[in-house]
Amino acid sequence: MKNTLKIERAIKDMTQDALAAEIGVSRQTINSIEKNRYVPSTVLALKIAKVFGKTVNELFELEAED
């Protein structure tokens, strides 16, 4: 599953640390999500989407192998 988290974060000029603090996870978790090494839970995906004012579908997209 790919995501546009890094782009959205750049648009909002937000650091990984700031985003992590806002949704209550570690900076490493945000980094893992951005690098597609970790797929967040629905709750976490909804929290991230809320921060950027987008829907989960706009941030996360399924790939052919998913």
């Binding site: 996870v25 570690s26 978790t29 893992s32 970790y38 839970s41």
Partner: peptide, 9 residues
């Protein structure tokens, strides 16, 4: 130190 859902997994 930073326990979250990724660490739980």
């Amino acid at each position: 130190k930073a326990e979250d859902e990724r660490l739980q997994k």
